[in-house]
Amino acid sequence: MTVKSIFRHETLLALLLVAVLIVLSFQSDRFFTVSNLLNQGRLMTEIGLIAIAMTFVIATGGIDLSVGSILGLTAILTGVFWQNVGMPLAVAACAAIAVGSFAGFCNGLIITRFNVPPLIATLATLALYRGLAEGISQARSVRGYPEWFYVLGQGEVLGVPTQLWILLLAAVLASIILAYTRWGRTVYAIGSNEVASRFSGLSVEHTKLALYTASGFAAALAGVIFVSRVSTTRSDMGTGIELDAITAVVLGGTSIFGGRGTILGTVIGLCLIQALKNGLSLAGVKGDGTIMLIGAVLILAILASNLFERSGTR
């Protein structure tokens, strides 16, 4: 892995993002306005938080398909802990996030202790956690949260949506950890060659356990923000969000086989997807046409980056 190869994909992607932004701002007057762009940031946060954690997971060569279900479970538990158990809402939200993180920890345990491939382990817990959400909620939704709770999902701090600050903080922290700490380098080492990492004395098991727990925590936090944004809880919240997050990560240049990837790439990938979604809908393209385009962009971006790579080092 060379520094050059990382920058190549991200530069390509950033140029693509700029081009998309320019084209879209010509398509509609309402696109390139501060209020619209900030609002798009609001809509991007839940997928963003999950995608940032997913970048670490995929960089180790793993994957976490259960994040959408953890999001749904946390959303339901926030409502149930508050309304049915009678906890204060702040405590209820923290307790729900703790359960979500524990769900991620269980993923990690299954993967590290039983040597179950991550794809299968999280496929099974995807069904289990979503099932728990459905069973606990019994198809009831919880509404009528106190006013202060909506600050998280609908309010603003210094003129910027509250959750966008959280996303920004998470992105900066994650970038520093992944690029500059010993722990972050361990993530790349595991993704490049797990056996060699183990023989080099790196704590492969502990790192993975921590990563899947962090992934659960990110999904749980996204769940609480989701509830605050839409003012209600439902057990089907976050269905399919895992594939959206993985798309952003892979579009951002993280290798699905591990060993390569950056948070900056993931963030650019996220912005590109959100800009396409919003810009095209403002230009009159229906949401479903946009989904098609995102699929095509994903395949073409990886194809292009493969071609560049082959002409370069290999």
Partner: peptide, 16 residues
């Protein structure tokens, strides 16, 4: 990656 992209294209195409 390919089938993730195909998933979006097919699902979006069907609904549109």
């Amino acid at each position: 990656v390919v089938t993730l992209g195909a998933l979006s294209i097919l699902r979006g195409g069907l609904i549109s």
